[in-house]
């Protein structure tokens, strides 16, 4: 593998002005303990996998960082993959999240109001923007400066957080990756594509939880009822139906009726992304592989994408392994 180059600068380093932002994005895929990280020129790609039937991908675009340098070593005699990408590695996602929130994540509101009016939680409500501290770091959005670096393969991922002169340095051990393949979505055989507000999907999934279901059935059809999510459990069954109202389903491409069943608890694993995302693109291919792509608004304008893939409950599950490399953050078109 790539030999360590001692005199070179680190393989990767980046500085973000908002550890909170990174935290909020990465928290969306916090359903397993280890995440696979791939560093590319465009950004950082975090992938998690559950039982080989669910994957979550967060792509931290380099636009999220104030500085972003990635200098891959020239691949001399490497038999690595194309254009000298550093091999992926795994880190403990929970530790990373713990690190990112070590100074707290909702500091903007809480600490401020605490200082203004002490303990009283009721009267301190809109105290932001009052006297003093016009150039406070928090007002300037400078809180939680976070620096990530990764010097070479096998080295730890180093995270340095600074706030008010307090510096936290954290080194996360990196592990060998234990999965490589993405769950394939046949982009040329998309059976349904629906774009809607993520909060509505979130609401629907929460409604279904009342039956304590194990399976979630997703039916889309070119005729009414257009898009339904249903589940059943010991206490009864529940169905949420969406009409074709363009205010509701922004995009609705369903050439013919499709019925797929997924494991409810896995879909619920994406609920954190549903809660904070603005929109969701629901796609599935003819094999029933489901892709939920969430568009999340980022603080300083722009958007980030969090991607989930699910393998359905059908006999064809895992039958043919499509090699198609799935690009990240391809947007909604």
């Amino acid at each position: 593998m790539a030999p360590n180059n001692d005199n070179a600068t680190s393989l990767f380093s980046a500085v973000s002005g908002s550890a909170r932002q990174l935290f909020l994005l990465l928290r969306c895929i916090n359903f397993v303990s280890k995440a696979q990280v791939r560093i590319t020129k465009e950004g950082l790609r975090f992938t998690v996998e559950e039982s080989q039937v669910m994957q979550g991908v967060v792509f931290l675009d380099k636009a999220l960082f104030t500085t972003y340098t990635y200098s891959p070593h020239p691949s001399n005699d490497d038999d690595d993959e194309e254009d000298a990408e550093a091999p992926p590695f795994q880190i403990s996602l929970s530790s990373l999240l713990e690190t990112l929130q070590i100074f707290g994540i909702n500091d903007l509101k809480d600490r401020w109001s605490n200082r203004e009016s002490g303990y009283d939680g009721l009267t301190s409500f809109p105290s932001r923007g009052e006297r003093g501290a016009a150039f406070d770091n928090r007002v300037l959005g400078m809180n939680g400066i976070c620096r990530l670096s990764y010097s070479a393969q096998g080295e730890p991922l180093c995270i340095i957080l600074e706030e008010k002169g307090v510096t936290t340095t954290c080194e996360l051990v990196t592990y060998e990756p234990d999965f490589q393949e993405d769950i394939p979505l046949q982009k040329d055989a998309i059976a349904q594509k629906i774009i809607m507000r993520a909060s509505w999907l979130h609401d629907a999934i929460n409604e279904l939880s009342s039956t304590s279901p194990t399976r979630l059935t997703m039916v889309s059809s070119p005729t009414a009822p257009y898009f339904t999510l249903s589940s059943s459990g010991p206490l009864g069954s529940a169905t949420v139906e969406f009409s074709k109202d363009p205010q509701l389903l922004e995009t609705f491409h369903v050439p013919r009726r499709t019925v797929n069943t997924y494991k409810y608890s896995l879909i619920q694993g994406a609920s954190r992304a549903m809660a904070i995302a603005a929109k969701v693109s629901i796609r599935s291919d003819q094999q029933g592989v489901l892709s939920l792509q969430f568009m999340i608004d980022v603080d300083g304008g722009g958007v980030s994408f969090v991607d989930f893939r699910f393998v359905p409950f059908i006999p064809e599950e895992g039958e043919d392994e499509d090699e198609s490399e799935v690009g990240e953050a391809e947007g909604f078109e």
């Binding site: 509505w200 206490l235 009864g236 169905t239 109202d245 205010q247």
Partner: peptide, 20 residues
């Protein structure tokens, strides 16, 4: 045999529960 509760929401979202 079910008690069927149908919540009709705005924008044509219909939530149907069939309770035993």
């Amino acid at each position: 045999c079910r008690l069927i509760v149908k919540m009709v929401c705005r924008h044509g979202v219909i939530k149907t529960y069939k309770l035993t």
